[in-house]
Design a binder for these strands. Structure first.
Lengths: 156, 156
DNA sequence: GACCGGTTACTCGGATACGAGGTGTCCGAGTGTGTTCGG
DNA sequence: CCGAACACACTCGGACACCTCGTATCCGAGTAACCGGTC
């Protein structure tokens, strides 16, 4: 199981946009900050726009900015926007295949125990992600980091 | 993010092997039970053998059996054996790239806050998986299911 | 009847193709800005 | 000097290739059981 690197990109970009208060930042600037392929990063930021986490303004001096205050954006929102809302584990109901064919349908009214256990674990993961916001990341980060990012972006 | 289907296969096979108490079951039989490609299922069972969850006995009347009692096999063990022990989220330290080049190395002694938050969520996921064993799955499963599996496997 | 050797059939195990999804790139549509011309 | 129209440059947005990883398959090495022959 492997999570796409776009999640890390999206979170770092959200953190940067949170520090640069409501100032539109184009993709090229964010890509240069982290040395990432600009076009591909843009593709990922579009996913965040579709999830209503960012807002995009076209034209000159345009770019991306946060759609909500940082305290209202959870890590779960960002992960779901980029990786997709589907669960990682998807029960294919293989218990009903092969030896299970022909058994009365009423036997399978209860959910597969494996599916239940897996969903329980993934729910714990989601709860932990939903309990943390971009604002929390800003609070735990060292104060000098925010200043360095603001200074680097203010330099023309 | 998507979890391989081999996890579901491995868990179902472990559950079946737990019900058929220490009776060696060949890959072909397990594949027929769930209507799965036999050779590919074998590949995944080999991963469970490497993780010392199953033991394999070659030759006629051979097959796979559990290496430990079901209460000593957690879901985390099975998932780690098949999906790999690495974390899903891997911090690439992009904060040190681009704008971060040239900053004193001492600034990055503290772990990346995003990495910390992600690891925390994944730790919750792992804890939940580690708290459940194959024996728990046996207990929560309806009693008729165990009988049906035993009957299907005893039929030659 | 018991023991031993050879044969057979069955099992796992790793090396080998195929395909989907993620990664990376490109070019066009749309918009705000800056300039320039006229009043 | 002020206003408006124009051209420009910059931005996002979706459509198009590449490449890694997961999926699927095959064949060979090894072993236990079985059968026949011998003592």
């Amino acid at each position: 199981m492997r999570m796409g690197e776009g999640v890390e990109w999206g979170l770092h970009c959200c953190l940067t946009l949170a520090w640069l208060d409501d100032e539109p930042v184009p993709t090229a600037r964010l890509a240069a900050q982290f040395d990432l392929p600009p076009a591909y990063l843009n593709k990922r930021l579009q996913a965040l726009v579709r999830a209503e986490i960012l807002t995009s303004t076209p034209g000159a001096r345009g770019g991306f900015r946060l759609a909500r205050p940082p305290a209202k954006i959870t890590l779960m929102d960002v992960v779901a926007a980029i990786e997709g809302p589907e669960d990682a584990f998807r029960c294919a109901e293989i218990r009903q295949r092969g030896a299970g064919t022909g058994t009365p349908a009423g036997e399978f009214r209860k959910r597969c125990g494996i599916d239940v256990a897996m969903r329980r674990a993934e729910l714990a993961w989601r709860r932990e992600l939903a309990s943390q916001t971009i604002a929390d990341l800003m609070a735990t980060a060292p104060p000098r980091a925010a200043d360095r990012v603001r200074r680097w972006h203010s330099a023309d």
